[in-house]
Amino acid sequence: MKAIPLSLALCALLASPLAMGARPGAATSPWGPDDQIGRLNLMTDASRAAVLSRIRGGTVYDLGVEYHKGMPSWSLLGDPTYQIWMTHTPRGTAVDNVLGLGRAMHEHVSYSGDAVLMYTHTGTHIDALSHFGLNGRIWNGFHHDSHQGDLGWHKGGAENLPPIIARGVLIDVPAYKGVDMLPDSYRIMPADLEGALSRQGVRLQAGDAVFIRTGRMRVIDDKQRYMDNPPGIGLDAARWLVETHGAMLIGSDNLSLESFPVETPDNWVPVHTYLEAEQGVAIMEVVDLEALARDRVHEFAFIGAGLKLRGASGAPMRPIALPLDPAP
Rank of each mutant, 00 (worst) to 15 (best):
D35P: 02
M317I: 13
A238S: 03
W31Q: 01
D236V: 05
M86V: 10
T87I: 04
V210W: 01
M317K: 04
A293F: 02
N97W: 04
V116L: 11
I164L: 10
M86Y: 11
S112M: 11
D325S: 15
E276D: 08
W240H: 09
S252K: 01
A158Y: 10
F142W: 12
N160W: 14
V65F: 15
H144V: 15
D172Q: 05
D45H: 13
Y67W: 15
E285G: 09
L182G: 08
L193E: 04
D253R: 10
P261R: 03
M20I: 12
G251Q: 01
L101M: 12
H68L: 15
T89E: 00
I84S: 12
I303K: 14
G113W: 11
D325I: 10
M118G: 07
S47K: 07
W240K: 00
L10T: 09
S110C: 13
P316Q: 10
A50K: 09
V219M: 02
T28C: 13
L63N: 03
Y119Q: 13
V297Q: 08
L18A: 14
R310W: 13
M284T: 02
I164F: 04
V173R: 06
A315V: 13
S185Q: 10
S16P: 02
I126K: 06
I188G: 07
P17R: 02
G64F: 08
P72I: 04
T44F: 00
D172L: 08
G32P: 00
D35G: 01
I220A: 12
H121L: 15
M71L: 07
T89F: 00
A128W: 08
G234C: 06
G195P: 02
P270A: 01
L289W: 03
P230Q: 05
Y111R: 14
I188L: 07
A209I: 00
A46W: 08
R54E: 05
V210F: 02
T44A: 09
G195S: 02
G21R: 10
G141E: 06
T124W: 00
L322Y: 04
M86F: 14
L182T: 05
L257S: 01
T122V: 03
P80F: 06
N135P: 05
R203A: 09
G311Y: 03
C11L: 13
A22M: 09
G280W: 03
A196Q: 03
A46P: 01
V202A: 03
A128Q: 04
G215A: 05
E66A: 15
E278R: 06
K2N: 12
S259I: 02
G311Q: 08
H144W: 15
L117N: 15
G156K: 04
G246C: 03
G123L: 02
P265F: 08
H121W: 11
A327I: 14
V269D: 08
G234L: 07
A166M: 10
P30V: 09
V109K: 09
L151V: 13
R23K: 14
I283G: 01
H147C: 14
N140I: 03
A209S: 09
G64D: 13
D192E: 04
M118K: 12
N229T: 12
S259K: 07
A191Q: 14
A293M: 01
E276S: 10
S185W: 01
I233V: 11
S73E: 06
T214G: 08
D192I: 08
G251D: 00
F142C: 08
L6V: 14
L129R: 00
S110E: 14
L101N: 13
A9R: 07
S259T: 09
G234P: 07
E299G: 04
H125K: 04
L40F: 01
V219C: 08
L77K: 14
